[in-house]
Nucleic acid binder design. Structure first.
Lengths: 159, 159
DNA sequence: GAAATTGGTTACAAAAGTATAACTATTTAT
DNA sequence: ATAAATAGTTATACTTTTGTAACCAATTTC
């Protein structure tokens, strides 16, 4: 399908660069208008809903947030009772974060709220395009989440 | 492949929500560190490289930027001589924006700079995954750019 | 031709994210 | 046991983006 690797990588990157503001448009704006959370704390919830438990540093690492920002966002989520701190008995420096049941429910509702505009647009797609979008977003997500996230914490210590 | 539409739409949206900070991570950070442009003005260049000529309002509409912000970002791009204003003879209120030759060259170089980290990660993929990512980003881009952008300007007058 | 609308700019305030340094508490290394 | 490194918080300054309102010039409407 592709005969020149460099060209295809350029194109992939161009696609991703183009995609980014498109997502921002739909998501960030409605997060702002429809919730009392910052986009940043929503991303933290997204990560937590995938990884169950993450330390403060891991959150900052995976989302590329500066540590002080993570602290602030998590504080907000805690006052909303959407996440809780778990102190690690093995290493008492580490603060692990986990979603509460309330957090999970709220997050589900928020996702529905936030994506309403996008949902309405996606719903208008015909089955063929819907399936294509489903498959493709899955592939992009899987591959990108694999290569973009530094699982080795050593790479993230500076953040 | 999918038998329940609602479920698949949920999943699509979840994928997109998850994808967003992943792209931010790689792109926004390096835009900041490697260029003297804001992410916002880079997105404007991205739109211009696809649409050739756009009015100020159209830019704000497609990127969901408030009009005053568009003015500021375009001003920056003009002082960098990367875009130029074209006054519309048919409607002298309209200010059309187009990339200069310098802008096109610079943008190409900036994209290369900005995506270096991402490029290195993508390069490590095997051919199969590379092809999958190529195809999928293309599909996501095509479909999303189709449904997310309000071509009817009437929907954007308030921005 | 007067009134309303539209495209764009200016000015200003507020929100969100980023960057840095200093600091505490804990753990690891020597 | 002391020194160095790590996890996290606090404080602060800064950049980027968002949101409003007021305004001008050009166009459209009636």
């Amino acid at each position: 399908m592709i005969n020149n690797e460099t060209v295809s990588i350029d194109r992939i990157i161009e696609n991703l660069i183009y995609l980014h503001p498109l997502l921002s448009k739909s998501l960030t704006r409605s997060i702002r208008s429809k919730t009392n959370l910052n986009p940043g704390s929503l991303y933290i919830l997204g990560m937590l809903s995938k990884h169950e438990i993450l330390s403060m540093s891991e959150i900052g690492c995976k989302l590329s947030m500066p540590k002080p920002h993570v602290t602030g966002q998590v504080d907000k989520l805690i006052t909303e009772e959407m996440v809780e701190r778990l102190f690690d008995p093995n290493d008492r420096r580490i603060v692990n974060i986990r979603m509460t049941e309330k957090g999970k429910e709220d997050f589900k509702a928020i996702k529905l709220e936030v994506s309403q505009d996008m949902r309405q647009r996606i719903e208008k797609l015909n089955d063929e395009k819907l399936n294509a979008l489903y498959d493709s977003t899955q592939v992009v997500r899987d591959i990108l989440s694999d290569i973009m996230i530094d699982t080795k914490m050593t790479l993230c210590t500076k953040i």
